[in-house]
Design a protein around this nucleic acid. Structure first.
Length: 289
DNA sequence: TAACCGTGGGC
DNA sequence: TGCCCAAGGTT
């Protein structure tokens, strides 16, 4: 049996990183904040920001009381700032409709902004110990290799991926088992250069047994960044993050030479609610003026 | 489904 | 250097 539960639980107990959101004293709110911040952002960059947030906003209602601009500033350069706005919106919902308590039910969590199939189950499992499959990119890769004998996971399919992992979950310690699968993918069974010599399930790995065949699935789309709207939006928002007072458009125009793209990006930031225009036509982060 | 949404570090 | 990758979600 590949991915034996006891083997992984033992390995996790010995080698897991001591991350603050994994500590027993961490609240469900702390877990939720960590999961949102960790979406597409590495642990090393999240940790210091997470500590600041939990000290400053220890409960959903505390964050809910902050302005969007404060929240965006505190988000800093974690990337994908719409996550910060959605987390703020989720905090408002939790404070208003859930008694300031992070829900423990997957369907209730799924109804909150910014919480999808992964995050809902991660919170249910890691904050409340629920036995539900938690599937992220690490888990998909680990299961593809150790259980299916492929070099990497194929295109994601939430239904199939959840069923795959559900079949592996032990009756006891399921949440820790999921954390161990993720940790294995993050530290050992990595995307580029897996450290198979250090793998606790090396002996039962189907990919090893198959002779480590190369990835056979469809090519994965690589995202460009340089020159895209994403880069320009990031530059525009960075100007507003760095000033306490609203700025004129000329100040924003300085960050990018292509006027058409610049204006399109500024407009989309306004539509997304990441930027606000003041009564006198200046631009600022939302909710601060 | 596939494209879009930031940012920075490693190789 | 340029490309790949990182605890996804939304549309």
């Amino acid at each position: 049996m590949s991915l034996d539960a006891q083997t992984l639980l033992d390995w996790f107990a010995e080698t897991a990183r001591d991350l603050p959101w994994r500590r027993p004293e961490c609240t469900a709110w702390g877990v939720l904040v960590s999961e949102i911040m960790l979406q597409q952002t590495p642990v090393a960059r999240v940790e210091p920001v997470w500590r600041e947030w939990l000290e400053r906003w220890p409960t959903p209602s505390a964050l809910a009381a902050a302005s969007q601009g404060e929240v965006l500033r505190a988000w800093g350069k974690l990337g994908y700032p719409r996550r910060a706005l959605r987390l703020h919106a989720a905090a408002v919902d939790i404070a208003a409709d859930h008694g300031d308590v992070v829900p423990d039910d997957v369907d209730t969590l799924l109804a909150l902004p910014g919480i999808g199939a992964y995050t809902a189950r991660a919170v249910a499992a890691f904050a409340y110990g629920k036995r539900c499959p938690v599937v992220d990119t690490n888990v998909r890769r680990v299961v593809a290799r150790a259980a299916h004998g492929a070099a990497d996971a194929g295109p994601p399919s939430t239904t199939r991926d959840l069923a795959d992992v559900a079949a592996l979950l032990p009756e006891e310690g399921a949440a820790t088992y999921s954390a161990a699968l993720m940790e294995l993918g993050a530290l050992v069974c990595t995307a580029r250069t897996p450290r198979c010599a250090d793998c606790p399930v090396f002996d039962t790995c189907a990919w090893q047994r198959n002779g480590r065949p190369a990835y056979a699935g469809p090519a994965k789309a690589v995202q460009k960044f340089a020159g895209t709207d994403r880069q320009v939006r990031g530059l525009l928002l960075d100007v507003l993050r760095g000033t306490s007072e609203p700025v004129g458009k000329a100040r924003l125009d300085a960050v990018w030479s292509d006027a058409g793209q610049r204006d399109r990006c500024l407009h989309s930031l306004l539509v997304d609610g990441l930027v606000e225009q003041t009564a006198d036509g200046l631009f600022a982060l939302p909710g601060e003026h």
